[in-house]
């Protein structure tokens, strides 16, 4: 079944998702292109997926800029616990 050229919407959109991460193989992209030719329901998906990817990239940047440190009081608490367990 894996090499079947005719795929379902579920598989087609999965390949489309994979493509957003540049990890879809040539064969997969071929199957997807064909599916999109014949399936009206799936046709808007790739375009919307691009929009989703753009949004998520903005989020990723935001996230990487966030402070990621423990507060000094949290550190103090942890130190206490270590002392008690030594």
């Amino acid at each position: 079944m894996k090499n079947n050229f005719f795929i379902k919407c579920d598989d087609a959109t999965l390949i489309c998702d994979k493509k957003q991460y540049k990890e879809a193989s040539f064969w997969e992209r071929l199957k997807l292109s064909y599916h999109l030719l014949v399936c009206k329901n799936c046709r808007v998906y790739p375009e919307q997926n691009e929009v989703l990817t753009k949004l998520l990239k903005i989020k990723a940047v935001e996230l990487s800029q966030k402070e990621k440190h423990l507060s000094s009081s949290e550190k103090k608490q942890m130190k206490e616990k270590i002392k008690n367990n030594l």
């Binding site: 579920d10 808007v44 929009v51």
Partner: peptide
């Protein structure tokens, strides 16, 4: 229908101008 879109989940064309609102 295995593998096909559930009726209520079929992607709809998006109404608002997506690229303008992305920010």
């Amino acid at each position: 229908n295995k593998g096909k879109w559930l009726e209520e989940c079929v992607p709809q064309t998006w109404e608002s101008d997506t690229l303008d609102t992305i920010e």
